[in-house]
Design a protein around this nucleic acid. Structure first.
Lengths: 112, 112
DNA sequence: CGGTATCCAACTAGATACTG
DNA sequence: CAGTATCTAGTTGGATACCG
């Protein structure tokens, strides 16, 4: 995981996407951000199995990769907002497909 | 990674898909299998950065999850073929999207 | 509120060598 | 050919506590 883009693309562009999106919670975070700007603890509540450290790291990597934009509002108490960039919003169809495929898979698996 | 399906789906169906498909080479293997049945070393050559151990494990997990079917032909030398199941073929649109998105991402990233 | 720091367990991945 | 065995390095994730 986290192969440099330049190498990944030589093997296969699919690898690039896996490299950028492959963190355990990344696509779920993107999914929630597709419904609008969110604050840090809001995202944390939406992904209850991940702890703050994990959420922080994955958001920072998404930021580095230009998927997410982080805005700090200098207030007390602090307010930090996360929103998708244009590149992040371009993931909408992909997230929808993964969501549908995952729901289908879970339905079949749990029935059997 | 590799959250049990039953828990993942409670959080979000996207997590299910990530759990099943999130291995570093899994989607690339699926992509190559979409073009037809392949033998073990053929797949290995198509994913040159992964070693045999890694390819083996990821194929086995895909098999457990009903994405890939493994057929051993009792010959000398041995021949083992991997093909997608119906569930595996249902990933075709997803793989295409990831491929296109990855290519786009790499293009933008390398240019800048 | 939105994180960091620390420490630690578990898993992943790779190199290399070997086998039925 | 299609793996397995062994050993090791590196990454991910989690619990808990603390900070500006």
């Amino acid at each position: 995981m986290r192969l440099p883009v330049a190498r990944a693309v030589e093997v296969c562009p699919v690898e690039v996407a896996v490299s950028v999106l492959g963190g355990t919670w990344k696509l779920t975070l993107v999914k929630h951000l597709l419904t609008g700007t969110k604050r840090f603890n809001e995202l944390g509540r939406l992904v209850p199995l991940a702890n703050t450290k994990t959420v922080t790291r994955q958001l920072r990597e998404l930021e580095e990769d230009g998927i997410v934009q982080r805005t700090v509002h200098p207030e007390v108490p602090p307010r930090v907002e996360y929103r998708l960039t244009a590149r992040g919003r371009s993931l909408a169809p992909l997230v929808t497909m993964m969501n549908d495929w995952g729901a289908e898979f879970a339905g079949e698996t749990i029935r059997s």
